[in-house]
């Protein structure tokens, strides 16, 4: 696909995602029934879970693109990893900030050492170091490679972190959607969740594509500028 097509697809997906987000707002505040034990705060679920999904999905893209980037040295892969990491960090932040809001009401505490909470906090820091190493080098090529290495090590270590933190007793709600007996959520709640997931995915993919094409343009301009400078110097 050409860059123009990519950008158009991105804009279209982002617009759809925005409409979806408005729909989710309406569903959450006016349509979905209130959960019996957790009460109103459970409505945070429909923004918390979709952002969690995006945070991990985006990190998958980051790691995959990073690994192939180190192998093929294709600039486009690095740009895709960068765009995905930015989006992943945004959604990871949403997840980390909305989690305590929910926890404060349901569990009576802002923070507990609950495995999935800890895992997401660490994921946030891995994203953070991804950007940190990228910007902390004098040679940008080196920064790209460093960031890719952080992405790959992160994805290798995350399963291990997950195992180690779940080793302790868990307070987090048990899985309610993905389990062998089928979802135990109320159908209306399930529909809201699905709309939320679809919305977050569209928003992420749309903005990801837009960010990617902007990065393409930026590097083109940079290259032209360095080329012009080199020509002037010669």
């Amino acid at each position: 696909m050409s860059q123009d097509r990519l950008r158009q697809t991105g804009v279209a997906l982002a617009v759809l995602g925005t409409l979806g987000a408005l729909l989710v707002l309406w569903m959450v505040f006016f349509w979905v029934p209130t959960e019996r034990t957790m009460g109103i705060a459970q409505r945070i679920f429909y923004v918390h879970v979709p952002s969690a999904w995006i945070a991990f999905f985006a990190f998958g893209i980051v790691a995959l693109c990073s690994a192939v980037y180190l192998w093929l040295k294709d600039e486009r892969l690095d740009m895709a990893a960068l765009a995905a990491a930015e989006g992943g960090m945004v959604f990871c932040t949403i997840m980390i900030l909305t989690g305590p809001l929910w926890a404060r009401v349901s569990w009576g505490t802002w923070w507990t050492w609950e495995p999935r909470l800890v895992l997401t906090l660490l994921l946030w820091f891995i994203y953070f170091s991804y950007f940190l190493v990228r910007n902390a080098t004098e040679n940008p090529e080196q920064g790209k490679r460093f960031a890719a290495v952080v992405g790959i090590i992160g994805v290798l270590d995350i399963p291990l972190i997950h195992i180690s933190v779940t080793w302790m007793r868990s307070l987090h709600p048990e899985p309610v959607v993905l389990k062998p007996e089928g979802p135990s959520l109320d159908p209306e709640m399930l529909i809201t969740l699905m709309v939320g997931l679809a919305t977050a995915t569209m928003l992420f993919l749309g903005l990801f594509l837009m960010r990617y094409t902007v990065e393409c343009l930026k590097r083109e301009v940079d290259q032209r500028q360095t080329g012009a400078q080199a020509a002037q110097g010669a």
């Binding site: 902390a136 195992i163 933190v165």
Partner: peptide, 26 residues
């Protein structure tokens, strides 16, 4: 990695600590 960045060794804890959780816990 950190020795070749402008931040030097101060970068090391940020990079390494999140990955050390399994070692600390077990």
């Amino acid at each position: 990695m950190s020795v070749r960045t402008t931040m030097g060794e101060s970068l090391l804890p940020v990079l390494v600590f999140p990955l050390l959780i399994p070692m600390v816990i077990f």
